[in-house]
Amino acid sequence: MRIKICGLTQLEDAQIAVKAGADALGFVFYPPSPRAITPEQAAKIIQQLPPFVMMVGLFVDPKPEWVTEVLKQVPLDLLQFHGDEPEAFCQSFGRPYIKALRMKPDFDPEQAAAGWPSARGFLLDAYTPGIPGGTGEVFDWQRFPASESPSWILAGGLTPTNVAQAIRITQPYAVDVSGGVESSRGIKCPTKIHAFIKAARS
Rank of each mutant, 00 (worst) to 15 (best):
T161F: 09
A146P: 05
R120I: 07
G133I: 09
G133P: 10
F107W: 06
A146T: 09
E110T: 07
G136P: 03
V138P: 07
G136Y: 07
A146M: 08
E110C: 12
V163G: 01
L123P: 01
T128V: 15
A119L: 05
N162H: 10
F122A: 04
A146E: 06
V138M: 12
M103T: 02
E137P: 05
W141P: 01
S92Q: 13
A119P: 13
L154S: 01
I153C: 04
G136L: 07
R102D: 11
I131S: 09
G136M: 04
G133F: 04
T135W: 02
G133A: 06
F122S: 06
G133N: 05
A114K: 00
T128S: 14
K104P: 11
A164K: 15
F93A: 08
A100K: 02
P117T: 07
K104G: 05
G115Y: 06
L124E: 01
A88E: 15
Q111L: 15
E148P: 12
D108Q: 15
E137G: 10
F93T: 10
F89Q: 13
T128M: 10
W141R: 00
S118E: 14
F89N: 13
L154T: 03
Q165W: 07
D125V: 07
R95E: 00
L158Y: 10
S151I: 03
F89A: 09
I167C: 03
F93R: 12
V163M: 11
W116I: 12
S118N: 15
I153K: 02
A112G: 06
L124Q: 04
